[in-house]
């Protein structure tokens, strides 16, 4: 392929005492693709995400972003390099408004974080950007609600919005549909697809909904017990016997 790897992880390993959550994982993410990581609970997907986003340091191994070693960069530095992440367990600012939640993310990428004696309200560029993101994730009209009062589905949209507001080049989605009802999922898929396909971004997606994964991803990595079990296109993965056994279960097994 002519496309460059935006992110490369070499031999990543993370041990919590005796438990090895991620064991010698190497993964290459191609630019402008949607790369899904699937696997049963406890396979180490979220831990891998934590290593890629910098929330945790790896026990050993390296992470490269655009060829640059970022293994020891803290998350805030990675954010400024263009890596964004959304969380499986909604991770928002509960006592602030929807607008402020997203405005903070747009402000983070700007140059006015240390204006100690200027009013934040006067930096309309961040507010305008935030309003655009609010529209993008479908929260228009909810701007001034304190977010702890939002219903779960809208919190998930906000979770996504906070990441999108940073306008990252590489988006790490950690189970964006977690806890959402099936009716709400298509809208979310559309939002994700729009960002990745239309803006030419790269995405890594951890997800449990197989239909969604099969439908939108270009490449799938299957993890099991901390290691990579298989990797390939959705078609290849669906037809992989090992994967069927380990993860997809009886239904897919019977079909194959």
């Amino acid at each position: 392929m002519s496309q460059e790897n935006i992110l490369e992880a070499h031999n990543l390993r993370k041990a919590f005492g005796g438990l090895v959550a991620v064991d010698d994982v190497s993964i290459h993410i191609q630019e402008k693709t949607m790369h899904a990581i699937i696997g049963p609970n406890g396979a180490g997907k979220t831990t891998l995400f934590n290593l890629l986003s910098g929330t945790m340091p790896p026990t050993s191994g390296q992470v490269f972003y655009h060829g640059r070693d970022i293994t020891h960069l803290p998350p805030q530095r990675r954010a400024h390099l263009g890596i964004g992440r959304s969380f499986q367990i909604t991770n928002i600012f509960p006592n602030l408004t929807v607008l402020e939640n997203i405005r903070l993310a747009t402000q983070a990428m700007g140059k006015h974080n240390f204006r100690l004696l200027h009013l934040a309200e006067n930096y309309s560029e961040y507010i305008e950007k935030a309003e655009a993101v609010i529209e993008q994730v479908g929260l228009t009209g909810r701007e001034l609600i304190i977010v702890r009062n939002l219903p779960h589905g809208e919190k998930r949209k906000l979770e996504l919005g906070i990441m999108l507001a940073c306008d990252p080049e590489l988006l790490l989605f950690d189970e964006p549909t977690a806890g959402m009802s099936s009716e709400q999922v298509p809208e979310l898929i559309q939002i994700i697809n729009k960002v990745v396909k239309e803006k030419g971004r790269t995405a890594i997606l951890v997800e449990h909904r197989m239909d969604m994964v099969m439908q939108i991803s270009d490449k799938i990595t299957v993890m099991s017990q901390g290691t990579i079990l298989a990797e390939g296109s959705p078609h290849e993965i669906a037809n992989n016997r090992q994967v069927q056994k380990a993860y997809l279960g009886d239904l897919y097994g019977e079909l194959a």
């Binding site: 992440r85 969380f87 928002i92 006592n95 993310a105």
Partner: peptide, 11 residues
């Protein structure tokens, strides 16, 4: 409110 998320968005 949320220190970890602040890190993740670049602060």
């Amino acid at each position: 409110e949320n220190e970890d998320r602040m890190r993740m968005i670049g602060y």
